[in-house]
Simulated assay, not measured.
Amino acid sequence: MNEVMRVSDLVFEHSRKKRWLKKPEIFRLGPIELSVQRGETVAIIGENRAGKSLLAKMLVGTIAADSGEICLNSQRYNAAQTPSPKSHHRSNDIRMIFQHSSEAMNPGITVGKILNEPLRLNTNLDEVECKQLIENTLVKVGLLREHYFFYRHMLSDGQQQRVALARAIILQPKILVADEPFAALDPSIRSQTVNLILQLQKELGLAFIFISHNLGIVRHLADKVIVMENGQIVESGKTETIFRWPQHPMTKKLILSYQSLVPQQTLR
């Protein structure tokens, strides 16, 4: 596998103002060091307020870090600057999948227009080329070309999730980032979405970084696990190594909690 992303010395510090009789709250994330390989699936786990979602937003550039560098597809970016509208390389190489796909879809416009928006902002394709790419992407995620003309209310939850995936991959990114992408889905749709992501990874060579509290999905899907606590990466490694031989107290706590919910015969 080839490295598609390397994060170096990523730091973010946020201070909430002091309230009456309370000290000001300071949350510091980092310094973060990590790398992602082509086609690799990386899961980020940890308790609430560990900094997982914040890290994901900084990776895609929706929140600027205080310092640090992100190297994407051999291009270096200052993590303290959000991507400018005139420079699309970073936003094209790494894309976000939203947790609630229905809330991310404008009910007043068609699927075709929803998928055309990132193309209009980031490419120089003409109308015919855009429509062809949109239809091909819909087929790629298991939908029909005719879904181009559908509105949100005409789609099932599973189809809406596929539209969200189509929007994420239409610019042919190298990395997809998702914060709890399976939490809002019922088990059958969740299984379909997991299988679809695995299929797209195989076909497109995508790397996938996702945050999840569902360690069953993490164990099934991830090649590598990153464990966070209080804004720090406290442990990382291959998935089976983390699950079988956790080293850090936080990792042990998370794994033991997961194992207590799983029938013992499946752990052997």
Rank of each mutant, 00 (worst) to 15 (best):
N78Q: 13
E25V: 15
D9N: 15
N48H: 11
I63T: 14
D93H: 13
V111G: 02
L54E: 01
K113L: 13
G61W: 05
E25H: 11
A50D: 03
N106L: 06
G51V: 02
K52Y: 01
M96I: 11
N116Y: 04
G108P: 01
E69K: 13
T41H: 00
E40M: 01
N116A: 15
R90L: 08
T110C: 08
K18F: 02
G46Y: 05
V60I: 13
S15I: 15
R19S: 14
V7W: 05
N122Y: 15
T123G: 09
K113F: 12
N78M: 10
M58G: 08
A104K: 08
T82Q: 15
K52H: 03
P24V: 08
L115I: 12
G30Q: 02
L119K: 04
W20P: 01
D66F: 09
R90D: 01
L10Q: 01
R38M: 08
K22D: 12
P118T: 03
C71H: 08
T41F: 06
T82S: 15
F12A: 07
E69V: 13
R76W: 10
A79P: 06
M96G: 02
T62W: 09
L125M: 12
G46K: 03
Q99F: 07
P107I: 01
A80T: 07
D126P: 10
K113I: 13
I94Q: 05
T110Y: 05
A64T: 04
I97E: 00
L72K: 05
S102G: 05
L121Y: 13
D126I: 09
N122I: 08
D66L: 04
S84I: 08
T82R: 15
L119C: 03
P31H: 01
K86V: 12
L55M: 07
A50Y: 10
I97W: 00
E127A: 15
P107D: 01
G61A: 06
K17T: 07
F27H: 03
P24I: 11
I70D: 00
V111N: 02
N78A: 13
P83D: 06
N106A: 06
E40V: 02
T123A: 07
N73V: 10
K86N: 15
L59F: 04
E127W: 11
L55V: 01
M96L: 15
E127N: 14
K23N: 14
N122C: 13
K18L: 11
I26R: 14
F12S: 08
A64M: 07
R76T: 12
I63H: 09
G112L: 08
L59Q: 02
F98C: 10
S84G: 09
Y77Q: 06
S8A: 09
A79R: 00
A64R: 05
Q81T: 09
N92S: 12
L10G: 00
R16V: 11
I44S: 00
A104D: 04
L119Q: 05
L72F: 10
S74F: 03
L54V: 13
I94V: 14
L34S: 03
G46L: 02
W20F: 15
R90G: 00
S8R: 14
N48C: 11
F12R: 14
A56K: 03
I44A: 01
I45V: 15
T123C: 09
A65G: 07
N92Q: 15
G108T: 12
